[in-house]
Amino acid sequence: MKEQQNFRLTRYAPTPSGFLHLGNIYSFVLTFHLAQKFGAKILLRIDDLDTERVKKKYIQDIFDTLDFLELPYHVGPKNLKDHKQHFSQEKRLDLYKIALEHLKDSGELFACNCSRKKIRNLHPKGFYTGYCQNRNLSFESPDSAWRLRLNTSEKILLNDLFKGPVTGNIPAEIAYCVIRRKDGLPAYQLASLVDDLHFGTDLIVRGRDLWASSLAQVYLSEHLPANSFSKTVFAHHPLIKGANNQKLSKSFGATSVRFLRKSGKRKEDIFQLIGQFLGLKKPSTSLKDFEFLCNFMEKRSTDQTRR
């Protein structure tokens, strides 16, 4: 990690499909300290395109939780109304459509009408195997998704904050990922990429479980009109785990900040719980107490590289 390196913008990018949990807050805390270290502003970007799962109460929870924990950001909505009027992903549908049409015209996409049941039957782990890529289905076929043609043997170059330039292959579970859903809306990989290009994000902090998504988005960016996404730097952090070594998710209700607040936990208690999940011996009860995470991640990445 180079001390002289500076970035313009990073982001918190929660999906309001549930209440924020301790894993989300850990990622936000690390993002905050990396932004501090490298002089970046922080954007609050709420990924609200999944209309089936997104609810107003979950969006409101994002503002409530950030306010409760005094986690600052510099760009983005200040409240639910401001988000809906000015920052919702619905406001950027035209941008997504332009990117989709460009990818379609370039030959990078194919139409697929496979059901979830069929996909599960075609692969023991439920990975999509590219069944429709040579069927030449019309992109306008009803009940069809648009998928990306991905060569899993192709090496993709990615800029890692701690390791420098690294290469990786798209893993099988994300090959042929959906770019436009059957309902016509852009899927996560495209929407996230277009949003980062639109806002000018140049430092992306996310969990290691999204390593494959980072590779897919870099690949996608190379097939869109000239852009600077190849210069984007990524920091993939370890996940904090719950019972049975499972990553925390919105289904872990007991780790949601909302649940903990209703149980009487204070801001200091929330930070201390995150420290306990990280295995810290010394109590960490404030945002500042996690400043060490930047150097810790750098050292851990360096040690892994030397092995």
Rank of each mutant, 00 (worst) to 15 (best):
S141N: 13
V29L: 14
V194K: 00
N151H: 10
L137Q: 05
G39H: 04
K155T: 09
K78A: 10
N159W: 09
L197Y: 00
P186L: 01
D67V: 06
L293Q: 04
L22R: 03
L161S: 03
P142K: 14
E268R: 04
R147Q: 10
C112I: 10
K262C: 08
D94I: 12
L278I: 08
F63M: 02
K262S: 10
K247V: 08
Q4T: 07
D202A: 07
D105K: 12
K288W: 02
K56S: 13
F229V: 04
Y131I: 09
G23D: 07
T129A: 04
A216W: 00
S228D: 09
F19G: 03
V218L: 04
L69H: 02
S284H: 08
Y26A: 03
D67E: 15
G264M: 05
A172K: 12
P171Q: 06
T201F: 02
S228W: 04
D67W: 12
K281T: 13
L210N: 02
G107E: 04
H198F: 13
L158I: 14
F271I: 06
L157S: 13
L148Y: 03
L239M: 11
G184P: 06
K231G: 15
L161G: 06
D105C: 10
K182I: 15
A235G: 07
K37L: 12
L9K: 10
V75M: 11
D196N: 01
K299H: 11
P72K: 08
R300P: 00
Y73M: 03
H236D: 02
L30A: 09
L34R: 03
Q189K: 14
S286V: 00
H236R: 09
H83C: 04
L158M: 12
H123C: 07
N245R: 11
Y73D: 01
N245L: 09
P142S: 13
C294N: 08
V194D: 00
L203I: 06
F259Y: 15
L44N: 00
L43A: 07
F234M: 01
D202K: 11
F139K: 08
V54L: 05
K282M: 06
A172V: 13
L137S: 08
K56H: 08
A243Y: 01
S27P: 04
G279S: 11
D143E: 14
L137M: 10
K231N: 15
I46S: 04
F110G: 00
F28T: 01
R306F: 14
V75K: 01
K125P: 06
C112R: 01
P14E: 02
W146Y: 04
L203C: 09
E3R: 10
S141K: 10
R181N: 11
I59Q: 07
F292I: 08
S228L: 03
K231C: 04
T31A: 10
L190M: 01
L93F: 05
Q133E: 12
Q133R: 14
L224T: 07
N169E: 12
T31N: 11
F162I: 00
K81R: 11
N295S: 12
L9E: 01
C294G: 04
K241A: 03
R208D: 08
Q36N: 10
H102G: 09
Y131L: 15
L287V: 03
R208S: 09
V218Q: 02
L148M: 12
K267F: 03
K84F: 05
V205K: 04
L100G: 00
S301D: 09
S256A: 12
K299V: 05
A172E: 14
R181Q: 13
K231S: 15
I170L: 08
